[in-house]
Nucleic acid binder design. Structure first.
Length: 890
DNA sequence: CACTCCCGCCAATTA
DNA sequence: TAATTGGCGGGAGTG
């Protein structure tokens, strides 16, 4: 025993301890990290003799008074120290500082002393809040555990939460890198953005109905499509943790932590009650909240809250509600993230400042991110992110678990989205009246028409919804939509960084963390933030089924929803469109059929290649990947220079031709026969900033497809035959998309043109007020202003960059959609459509079951689980990659 | 008794 | 296979 003790004691004993601690802390001795011997030692001790045991015994035996005395006394310290931090503190200079008071308490054997919060403080005390970027601090879990005198399990709890905020990142097993709070603001910003997408609506409700917690909770659930969450998480975590740590379940403490923080950031009051948070965080779609599950969730929230409290980000408060007093937590951390994270920003790679508006940020990301990502990947890591780099490497491996994880994420997200969507639908029906009408019309139209955008001025939420809806229609037409986790970082594959994007077999291209929906409609791609997606899905859903959903804030659900929609589409295969809405409907012209046809052709083409080429990619992702590839290659070049877009386009055209051809025929015939002919189908995208209403969305219109379609006559309904991508701002951030500066009124004419880069819609054009309809055919709404403005900053490559991501997303979508629908049948349908466009693989993954299943939300009895897993994994991997790349960037 | 949440079993993952 | 991670929930400490 003594021997064991010694090993442990080492920390305790002044002599041994100090040296050890120091070396570990500052030195970041990697050496130790790998080593896990500590653990062994601990275990043996713990059981029989562990210091803890002794302490416990003592404590229990001793009276409180005694405890206090003892605590103070040195005698006690040794014992306790071994377990806790007292000794360590003494040993560790830093620790003492922060936790002086705590130590006091710690001495006690009492439970409080062992609290996770205290432990966390001790842990934090060991490291500087703002470490020099130059010096990397590695943390050995074993060491820390032994130093703090706790079992490793507890360290995991702390580290997981810290990791969710990027205070640390996992480098390797047993090793974490300490980043401190340098990136905290960035991370919070990202989370806030993500949270707005996911929970924005909820929060709104909150404010409105503070009382109705339940409602709140419910809504949250709905809205909260986890899909987004994960993406968010990814964003935040992209670099480090995503890779290895992600494994396990979606629910990880990490994700919960992020979501929890998001709730605070989104909440106006900055106060979140535990029960609400628990409800929101419960994956289960439905109301069915098992009491046990709820309890478990609450336990976890306490764990998280303790850590966050020790970080001084929240504090415990009590909210008196109707029922009585509820435990709650108030956010006391930074609230405004103007966009930059001060020092943080500079350091953080991925996290650029998300300054201004999301969109802008997104745009910037696109532009800038690529480079970073690439860099990050290649470079092992810089400063704080080194760890990430390593992981990436690992993850980058084609078949590595990471991919799987990613896929899983996707699937989960999808599931969540689906669930949310369902709920949302219900809610929306009830609540979203005005919106509904619009949406409905949209949805209907959507079916008929490829897609319509409703410009919803007003609230962002609403805005979001409209767009999504619009998107959905498109999806329906075609296909599959997939949701990707939102990539937070700039990881997005930029054109400039071809390697990066491809590195992972295309996966990387996708933005890891950012959730988005891709609608591989023949002509359009839509990327939506989770929320948005949800909205879309809602609206879209078959007119018959859910025509009324309001896209509402639930957007969060979006991904799932979207998928569902797609599935719906499938199911509703080309419902003859009704033109409920005149304008929109007009567009519907081609209606679903067209889009489908268009889409299908492409995908098939692409998919084959992609698949063949990339084994690594997820099956489901295949088509996407293919797409990506095409895009990527072109993009990469572009990435370097925005202007380069043209060249890229050319490249794209070259590459894409295959895809395009198939696609085009359908589209081209209908919409843009001419243009297509002229131009190869380059995957060009038009980037449209989100209108005010759409704050979070970005639209990308593929120039290629569009071209033909674009021909729109200004007057009528603006329909875009071109594929467009809707990307949440967040997503954009990750994307390398670039808007071609040149556009002027691309829509009208030429966006489609070959060389023409991507077209940008200025937000203003979209500006909420005017609804834009995009028909599969290609009509563009007049509103769309040919705004060159939109993003001068952004290069015109959007398409390229996006494509990779999209591709995956697409694959995912396919899967998802069926799931979402909850109707296996739909899936099948989808598949078909997808099949054309998508490779079989992609479809399979689509099976979605996994996605659907996850939360148990839908209860999908679906039978396609197999694929799901893969898909999700892939997606996740992709995300990770992206993240990683982004983070590592520099 | 309700709120907290420690503790550690044990499964999922990883090495 | 062994080690690492981490979900999970029993049940104990606190007020």
């Amino acid at each position: 025993e003594n021997i064991f003790d010694r090993s442990r004691m080492a920390p305790k004993t002044p002599i041994k301890n100090e040296p050890i601690d120091l070396s570990k802390q500052k030195g970041c001795t990697p050496e130790r990290n790998p080593i896990t011997p500590v653990k062994i030692i601990d275990k043996p001790q713990a059981d029989p003799w562990t210091p803890t045991a002794n302490l416990k015994m003592l404590v229990s035996a001793a009276s409180p008074d005694m405890r206090d005395r003892e605590k103070k006394k040195e005698l006690f310290r040794p014992i306790e120290n071994s377990e806790q931090s007292d000794t360590p503190d003494a040993l560790q200079y830093d620790i003492v500082d922060d936790s002086t008071v705590e130590e006091f308490e710690k001495r006690r054997p009492s439970r409080k002393q062992k609290s996770l919060g205290l432990l966390c403080q001790k842990f934090l005390a060991r490291y500087p809040n703002y470490p020099l970027s130059t010096e990397k601090t590695t943390i050995s879990l074993d060491e820390v555990a032994s130093i703090l005198g706790v079992e490793r399990r507890r360290i995991y709890d702390i580290v997981n939460v810290l990791e969710s905020l990027h205070l640390v990142s996992r480098v390797a097993k047993n090793q974490y890198c300490w980043h401190g709070r340098q990136n905290l603001s960035q991370t919070l910003k990202k989370l806030q953005e993500a949270g707005e997408l996911q929970y924005g609506e909820l929060m709104t409700f909150q404010h409105k109905e503070q009382d109705s917690e339940y409602k709140f909770g419910e809504r949250k659930r709905e809205t909260v499509p986890e899909s987004q969450d994960r993406p968010l998480l990814d964003f935040s975590e992209p670099d480090c943790s995503s890779a290895s740590a992600n494994s396990r379940k979606d629910k990880s403490l990490r994700i919960m932590s992020q979501k929890f923080v998001m709730l605070f950031l989104v909440s106006k009051t900055k106060i979140v009650t535990l029960d609400i948070a628990a409800k929101i965080l419960i994956e289960e779609t439905q109301d069915t909240v098992d009491h046990s599950k709820f309890k478990t969730k609450v336990r976890r929230l306490y764990d998280i809250a303790n850590v966050l409290t020790s970080l001084d980000l929240i504090k415990k408060v009590h909210v008196t509600e109707e029922r009585g007093r509820k435990p709650a937590f108030k956010w006391i951390g930074p609230v405004e993230f103007s966009g930059k994270t001060d020092e943080l920003t500079g350091h953080s790679q991925t996290s650029d400042p998300l300054p201004e508006t999301q969109r802008e940020a997104c745009a910037r990301y696109h532009i800038c991110a690529p480079g970073k990502q690439r860099l990050t990947r290649h470079a092992s890591f810089n400063g704080a992110q080194p760890c990430e780099g390593t992981r990436r490497k690992v993850s980058s491996e084609p078949n590595s678990p990471r991919q799987e994880r990613q896929d899983e994420y996707c699937s989960k997200m999808v599931n969540l989205a689906a669930v949310c969507r369902q709920k949302i639908e219900e809610d929306t029906r009830n609540k979203a009246c005005g919106m509904e009408t619009i949406l409905n019309s949209a949805s209907n139209s959507s079916i008929t028409t490829p897609f319509s955008l409703l410009p919803v001025p007003g609230d962002s939420d609403f805005c979001v919804n409209p767009l999504p809806q619009a998107a959905f229609p498109v999806v329906q037409a075609e296909v599959p939509s997939f949701s990707l986790p939102v990539g937070i970082n700039s990881q997005a594959p930029h054109p400039s960084t071809p390697a990066a994007s491809k590195t992972e077999d295309g996966k990387p291209a996708l933005v890891p963390s950012q959730p988005f929906l891709c609608f591989p409609s023949s002509s359009l791609f839509m990327l939506c933030g989770g929320l948005q997606e949800n909205n879309l899905s809602e609206t879209q859903p078959l007119a018959g089924d859910k025509g009324n959903w309001s896209a509402e804030a639930e957007a969060a659900v979006s991904p799932a929803l979207c998928q569902k929609r797609s599935s719906h589409k499938c199911t509703l295969p080309s419902p003859p469109v009704d033109d409920e809405e005149p304008a929109a409907k007009k567009q519907n012209i081609e209606q679903t059929e067209l889009p489908l046809s268009l889409v299908v052709p492409k995908k098939p083409f692409e998919s084959p290649k992609a698949e063949s080429t990339r084994g690594s990619g997820c099956p489901s992702a295949v088509h996407l990947e293919t797409y990506h590839l095409d895009l990527e290659s072109p993009t990469a070049p572009e990435a370097g220079s925005k202007e380069s877009t043209k060249p890229l386009d050319c490249q794209e055209q070259e590459k894409q031709p295959q895809n395009r051809d198939p696609d085009e025929p359908p589209l081209g015939n209908e919409h843009i026969p001419k243009e297509n002919a002229n131009q190869p189908f380059q995957p060009q995208y038009l980037y449209v900033q989100p209108p005010a209403g759409l704050s979070s969305f970005n639209f990308l219109f593929s120039a290629n497809q569009a071209p033909g379609a674009i021909s729109l006559p200004s007057n009528q309904i603006p329909s875009l035959s071109v594929p467009c991508v809707m990307v949440p701002s967040a997503a954009l951030a990750s994307f390398p998309l670039v808007c071609s500066p040149s556009f002027t009124s691309p829509l009208c004419t030429d966006a489609s043109f070959p060389a023409a880069a991507s077209m940008n819609f200025s937000m203003s054009s979209l500006a909420s007020t005017t609804p834009v309809f995009i028909s599969t055919t290609a009509v563009v709404t007049p509103k769309v202003s040919p705004t060159p403005s939109v993003d001068p900053s952004q290069p015109a490559h959007p398409a390229l960059h996006l494509s990779p991501v999209l591709t995956r997303s697409c694959s995912a979508v396919k899967l998802d959609s069926p799931v979402c629908v909850g109707h296996p049948v739909t899936l099948l349908k989808l598949q078909q459509p997808s099949s054309a466009p998508l490779t079989p693989k992609s479809i399979r993954p689509a099976h979605h079951e996994a996605f659907f299943k996850t939360p148990g939300s839908l209860g999908d009895p679906v039978t396609w689980k197999k694929n799901e897993g893969n898909q999700t994994r892939n997606a996740s991997s992709v995300q990770r990659r992206l993240e990683i790349s982004g983070t590592s960037a520099d």
